[in-house]
Computed example of a mutant assay.
Amino acid sequence: MTVVDTQVISFAPAAASPPAAQVDLMAAEEFLRMFHDSHSGAGPLSQRLAEVRAEVGKSGTYRHTPAELAYGARVALRDSGWCTSGMPWRRLKVRDLRGVRRPAAVAAECFDHLRQATNEGAIRPLVTVFAPDTPDRPGPCIWNEQLVRYAGHRGEDDSIIGDPRYAEFTDSMRALGYRTPALPGRFDLLPLVVETADEGAKLFTVPSEAVLEVPLTHPELAWFGELGLRWHAVPVISNMRLSIGGVNYPAAPFNSFFVGAEIGTRALADEGAYAMAGAVAERLGLDTGSERTLWRDRATLELNRAVLHSFDAAEVTITDHHSEAQHRLAWLRSRQRPSGGRPAFRVDTGAVQRARFGGPAKFSQPPAPPGGRLAALRKRLDSV
């Protein structure tokens, strides 16, 4: 799952995240016409348009039918470029959890998404849709870029154990209550952060049993396993906003499966991540004194071979970057250009900042209601 520069996924200003005063009726109508064009048995379009106009006029928003939601999520994933690997997008499973908005419930369902998507290694593409933004109440948001990410523990000498890409996020998690393990490791799971307007940001430990990890070995180099490398099986993108017909779903985690180079090249070999190219080159006996020997290329190649070999040996779904390139070329030829009413996954500037730095919070901390803790508890129960 990698991004191409021309895909529909786009960066929107941070101001786009909060709920709008009212749904854009033009966007709603464009989507509904698109849905009815694809579903001949959906009933009269004129009747549905009238229902939506009336609902928006009354509440400022409208509720998608389960069929509309599923279709919109599938089209958004197909058009985004994250789901190009020859998968039958019409059969992608969409989990309709629009009634779930409390942080603990959102986290629990995210972990269940991981379990279902893992599917004992036969990775199952899924989209889980939580409560939407409405004019009177914003939906929950997830800070993490992906449900599974590894911590970057900063030492006293500013050295980092783990993934340096998430060192700032790890630091901010400590401020929110995350406890660094007594013996920090290179592959410690970061907690999941779910934020709501009512309860603020909450941390949740990702259950280790929900995360399938693949130990990395090499088909020819017996010493490779001594490097102690591994990677998680399912890439679940969790901080993107799903927009369908003018309605925004700020928490809608989704997954397909990994492209090998995303692990071997971008995570393991890259100097800004685990920087393993040097260690592999040394074990291979390569001349690292000059970049002109192309030792980085040779080491990165072996890292990528190890990733594909290990996932195949563990019977975990993965694709290689050459096969993916062919699918992406076909996608680029056939994809639809984005428009206001066409479903899309988008990432906001604020979401990018939270995923990288662990803040700032999306919502200001809600004031304590009058009447003390009992009144606060009653308010929470009423909002369930």
Rank of each mutant, 00 (worst) to 15 (best):
R98L: 08
Y150H: 13
T118S: 13
I123K: 05
A167L: 02
S159T: 15
R95H: 12
P135H: 02
I123V: 14
E156M: 09
V148P: 04
A117Y: 11
S172F: 03
A70L: 14
P88R: 01
Y178L: 12
C141A: 05
A131S: 14
R74E: 12
S159C: 10
Q146R: 13
T170Q: 03
V94S: 05
P88W: 02
P135Q: 01
L77S: 09
W143A: 15
V75Q: 15
V75M: 15
D158R: 14
R91A: 07
D157K: 10
Y178D: 15
A108D: 11
C110S: 06
Y150W: 15
E120D: 02
D163E: 11
Q146T: 14
N119R: 13
R98W: 10
V106C: 09
G152P: 12
Y71T: 14
V127A: 12
L126S: 12
G152F: 11
Y166M: 07
D133E: 09
A104G: 12
D79A: 06
A131L: 06
M173Y: 06
Y150V: 09
P138Y: 03
G99W: 00
S159N: 10
L126M: 14
P88S: 04
I142Q: 05
P103V: 10
A73V: 09
A131T: 12
T170A: 03
G86A: 05
K93W: 03
A73F: 10
G152V: 11
R90F: 04
F130I: 14
D79N: 08
F111G: 08
D171Q: 13
V148H: 03
N119P: 08
A107H: 06
W143L: 08
